[in-house]
Amino acid sequence: MAGDAPRSRGRLVLARLLASPGVVIGGGIVVLLFLLAFVGPYLTHWKYTDIDYTALRQPPSAQHWFGTAGLGQDVYAQTLRGLQKSLIIGLLVALLSTCLAGLVGACAGYFGGWTDRLLIFFVDLMLVFPSFLIITIVSPRLKNSGWLAFVVLLAAFNWMITARVVRSMTISLKEREFVRAARFMGVRPLRIIWRHILPNCASYLIVDATIAVGAAVMNETMLSYFGFGVQPPDVSLGTLIADGTDSAPTYPWMFYFAAGLLVLFVLAVNLVGDGLRDALDPTAAAGRRPSRRTLRALRRRAAATAAVGSRGTPPALDAEGTA
């Protein structure tokens, strides 16, 4: 389905994406975080498993850049190791659960009838099932299949409410004339869902996905607590934050580096998500009432683009520039 997606819409959305400073900054931060997570560990000779008995709970120094933890572990190495895991878990879980929610919700809403009843029954079943119970049953079998199974499990308990919302949005979209028109033109149902239904639910899906990123990182700690997922001596941002919370007032370096990176990560994803939402919604610039701050930013940008004589700037922006 994705292969024959319209090129021209794709190109337009891409151009709008690249024109938005939020996406560029957010995307840049995510790339830098990945670089840090995967290249950073080579900059120091400490491994996240190494223990330096000469330095217990030491503040950051030239030797240990982020300081050391209770057993003398190097916090820098630990944080980067955790970042590696959390970046992948956060992004993949959000992507997977949003895709699943979108697909199930849109199919249930669009096809209606028995498809709807069966899918919604399944969604409700997932909602009422105690997830811990299932995890305790499933976890011994999955113990050796690595982080991918873990991502799937996290995503599997995270999509139901989104799917229900998408379903109700689809039901109202289905009656809109443009969907009807597509149907009368002989466009296939799955293609209608891909081209018309999902883009029109995109604002909600994107906001939901950006929230899911942060939630996935924190949910992972919960699973780790039950002996599943990331186990010591291996670490993730989630476990680091959970362990460091108590020491935050006394040994701040054990908490704030991990927490700070998580905040930065979620913030960057939010920036990208906002930009993507605006890029997909052509009326975004004109339809929303921006805050004073964004107005000022718009004015600055308009002034900048006016200088290079940009093409296709919405009239609102031009008015800002001259105002």
């Binding site: 319209p6 021209s8 819409r9 809109r176 004339e177 009807r180 018309h196 883009p199």
Partner: peptide, 10 residues
């Protein structure tokens, strides 16, 4: 209503 607001007219 009969034109998808999220698609360019092309």
């Amino acid at each position: 209503a009969s034109l998808d607001p999220r698609l360019p007219i092309g």
